[in-house]
């Protein structure tokens, strides 16, 4: 059994802070929005917790950004610049998830620290990290103090637009989490990827890889 050091400590810490924050924000967000249907905690507590954890997530994002830019690792998120390479990569990966995996084929992508994500992951995570997460953080920040951010809120089309963006992104992240967790169980064993996210080391069974 070969071991690859795939997840450096800062990234693991970042990931798990993210994970806990997401869950807390999901729960408190639902509590704030659906007061009439659930009462896990008081509205006030839900708002306070949501605000605090929201800021945790903002700082966490900044840490991620700074870490990846300064270490240059950000390039693992950038899909191949060659369209052909990218498209074929995507098709190959999609074929694997939709067909190959069912037939017991080997995952065509082998994660290394330099090439961590398959092209589909690159596309998804780039969109998430560069577009969706910042959009969620910024819309959350606006909603945190709509008086202070009245100008930008008005600029993007009003409070209802900002709120709708925040909610739609929340719904996206919630549904993404299901897929994310499921995909995490598709390592060579069900817990392989998950263990790696704790230890940093991804186990590669002998005979795999190139």
């Amino acid at each position: 059994m070969k071991k690859i050091y795939l997840h450096p400590l800062p990234i693991r810490i970042w990931h798990w802070i993210n994970a806990v924050s997401f869950i807390v924000l999901f729960v408190t967000g639902l509590q704030i929005r659906y007061r009439d249907m659930m009462s896990l905690m008081k509205f006030r507590d839900a708002v306070d917790l949501h605000n605090v954890v929201g800021f945790v997530l903002i700082f966490n994002f900044i840490i991620w950004l700074v870490y990846y830019i300064f270490t240059g690792k950000i390039r693992i998120y950038i899909p191949p610049l060659s369209v052909k390479k990218f498209v074929t990569g995507c098709i190959r990966q999609a074929r694997y998830y939709g067909y190959g995996i069912l037939l017991g084929e080997e995952n065509p992508h082998h994660s290394t620290p330099e090439n961590k994500f398959n092209p589909m992951q690159q596309m998804a995570y780039l969109a998430i990290m560069v577009l969706l997460i910042p959009a969620q953080l910024v819309s959350g920040l606006f909603l945190w103090d709509i008086k202070q951010f009245a100008g930008p809120i008005s600029l993007v089309g009003g409070l209802k637009v900002v709120d709708s963006v925040h909610v739609v992104l929340f719904l996206f992240f919630l549904s993404f989490i299901f897929v994310h967790i499921y995909l995490a169980t598709l390592g060579h064993t069900a817990t392989a990827h998950i263990k790696a996210m704790f230890t940093g080391y991804e186990e590669i069974p002998e005979g795999h890889g190139h």
Partner: peptide, 26 residues
């Protein structure tokens, strides 16, 4: 567009979109 009260004036349409998206994700 400038009137939104947490928990009280949520867009009903988003509730349905939410159900669809979560169902889709699951």
């Amino acid at each position: 567009k400038q009137f939104y009260v947490l928990g009280s004036t949520r867009l009903k349409a988003l509730d349905w979109i939410g159900i669809l998206m979560v169902f889709g994700g699951l």
